[in-house]
Design a protein around this nucleic acid. Structure first.
Length: 577
DNA sequence: GCCGTTTTCGGCCCGACTGTTTTCAGTCG
């Protein structure tokens, strides 16, 4: 994502915080927050949009905010920001990050006790002066202390796989309680976002209190944040930090409405609810209502139908045009995990993987695949056991022999060929010509002209596929300095395939860029980049990312039967010559 | 501050839990 977008998103969030700290509430604050969210999600550079005078075409950005963005881009300053934060101690903003502490509390302790930062807050908690303030008390002070502790121990957002596994474990625990009739994941995990903050779980059953009890007795609970009649929050200790998990218990005839509500996203729901209002309806987590009459809510389909809409898949619910598409009847039919027939980027113990070819093939057959591509690293990836040319050719012979003994399954000869800093590929043409599938990617020189190197790889007549095109590692590394817009354009021109790498820390291309690729007419591959048999499970995260990118099975080459794939690979190299 | 297939003005999603209250404010999702 363009850095400037993130910077502006932070600025508008800061303005919203500042306004709240000064006692302002309501819709202006809400508008700044919305603008921040929209900017953080935007792939296009706001600088470009500003130049083209198109800022106001973005929903959530109106004349006022567009003007402020322009001001910041041209002068490096924003009067509104300076005005908003003036008179506020910088440390106060940090206090807002403590769970359970909001603007009112910060304002109160600042005005009454002169608290300016975290240390100041700890002091007034310690000496008991906070508890004596009006509206405060011992319990509140204790909860704020717990909040500080939680904030200090909480990790960053979770990777999709960690959230997925934790949620499954808790759901399993809930199912052990005899009272649970139905249980489901909601929230951003259900939408398949690449990182997850909290986990939301929804359950229904005859005895809500017992379900809540079952929930808060999960073995890894560190702290019960709250536990009422219909909802509870716990903090769970995992290997990587402390994670919050929320449970809601709802009536079974409102399960669909609740699932819809708690799946979000916030923006999607706000858009739906506004639509409902215009139709004289009200949608809540309890159902769809006309006046006091309840029209439905047992299933999500019922909720959408009440608005005259078809069911919208959770991965699409980001208010990125899905509601408009639903109105037009032009929602995409999304790819499913069952549509995947192959994994086209797998490493074995011949380079830096840990499973053998036989183990990989066995596991892939079990998954119902009909073919795979084995793609070891190339020679200059020495750190990853990259194969020399002669080793690769020998490996090709082995695979040929292996295939001759296989029935109903085929291993494609491939390699993940490094794009060198000079833009050349790591193997000679004659070696590349021996491969069924030529994958290329960057593993070195991230700042050295990545765009033109990838573009020259795309133009290379023997290349089929670009793996992890942006090079990012979520939460760890920003990725190459690369113009993905240009890469996609180039891929479209040369009919090359771009990868969605399913490794949970990559998910590269991400949902937004993969959608742009599709819109540009580029085919995508969804591969695990597995280095061991267990990693083959990551396919699920790649497919979810593909679904978030509005991909159908015809957009993804892993859904092709072997013959059609071979034909396509042949055409790709023919066409680009 | 944003937004419009009844609107350029008057709306803006909605409810649970906690703690401190004796009827509600603050926070969260």
């Amino acid at each position: 994502m363009p850095v400037i977008n993130q910077e502006l998103a932070r600025i508008f969030d800061r303005i919203a915080d500042a306004l709240e700290l000064k006692g302002e509430t309501g819709f202006r604050v809400f508008a700044y927050r919305k603008a921040a969210r929209v900017l953080a999600d935007l792939t296009e550079d706001v600088g470009e949009l500003d130049k083209a005078n198109r800022l106001e075409t973005i929903p959530g950005i109106g004349a006022g905010i567009a003007k402020k963005i322009h001001e910041y881009l041209t002068t490096g300053r924003m009067k509104k920001l300076e005005e908003a934060v003036s008179g506020l101690e910088p440390g106060l903003f940090t206090l807002l990050e403590i769970p359970g502490v909001g603007p009112k509390t910060v304002k109160l302790v600042f005005e009454k006790l002169g608290v300016k930062d975290l240390d100041g807050l700890k002091k007034v908690l310690g000496d008991g002066s906070l508890a004596k303030l009006p509206g405060m008390g011992d319990k509140k002070a204790e909860n704020i202390l717990k909040g500080i502790e939680a904030a200090e121990h909480s990790g960053e957002r979770m990777y999709l796989n960690e959230a997925d596994e934790l949620a499954q474990s808790i759901i399993e625990h809930l199912r052990k309680g005899p009272q649970v009739k139905k249980v489901a994941v909601a929230g951003s995990l259900r939408r398949g976002k690449e990182t997850i903050g909290d986990i939301d779980i929804l359950a229904t059953g005859d005895n809500p209190q017992e379900i809540i009890h079952q929930f808060i007795t999960y073995s890894f609970v560190r702290q019960v944040v709250s536990a009422g009649d219909t909802k509870a929050s716990i903090l769970v200790g995992t290997g990587t930090g402390v994670r919050q998990v929320d449970l809601r218990v709802v009536a079974s005839d409102a399960f669909g409405a609740a699932l819809q509500y708690f799946t979000g996203s916030k923006d999607h729901n706000i858009a739906l609810r506004s639509m409902a209002q215009k139709l004289g309806l009200k949608i809540s987590e309890y159902g769809v209502f006309k006046g006091k009459r309840r029209l439905g809510g047992k299933t999500e389909t019922e909720v959408y139908r009440s608005l005259g809409l078809p069911y919208i898949e959770p991965e699409l619910r980001e208010d990125r045009g899905e509601i408009e598409a639903a109105k037009r009847g032009s929602l995409p039919k999304l790819i499913r995990l069952e549509d995947i027939k192959s994994d086209l980027h797998i490493h074995t113990d011949a380079s830096d993987g840990s499973s053998s070819l036989e183990e990989v093939v066995g596991a892939c057959r079990q998954r119902g695949y009909s073919h795979i591509a084995i793609a070891e690293h190339s020679v200059s990836a020495g750190y990853a056991g990259g194969l020399r040319e002669d080793e690769l050719l020998k490996r090709c012979d082995e695979i040929d022999r292996f295939n001759s003994k296989l029935k109903g399954f085929r291993v494609l000869k491939s390699a993940e060929v490094d794009i060198m800093t000079n833009g050349k590929l790591d193997y000679s043409e004659s070696t590349l010509a021996r491969l069924d599938l030529v994958i290329t990617s960057i593993h070195q020189g991230f700042t050295k002209d990545a765009t033109s190197r990838i573009c020259s790889a795309i133009a290379h007549p023997l290349v089929h596929l670009i793996a992890h095109p942006s090079g990012r590692l979520i939460g760890k590394r920003r990725g190459y300095e690369i113009d993905l817009e240009k890469v996609i354009e180039h891929a479209a021109r040369f009919h090359k395939v771009l990868e969605i790498n399913s490794y949970y820390a990559r998910l590269d291309l991400n949902d937004i860029w993969a959608r742009k690729a599709k819109e540009a007419g580029v085919l995508l591959a969804i591969n695990t980049d597995a280095h061991a048999v267990v990693d083959l499970n990551w396919m699920r995260y790649g497919v979810i990312t593909g679904r978030r990118a509005w991909l159908g099975k015809k957009d993804v080459i892993n859904c092709l039967p072997l013959d059609n794939l071979m034909k396509l690979l042949y055409q790709i190299t023919r066409r680009s010559v």
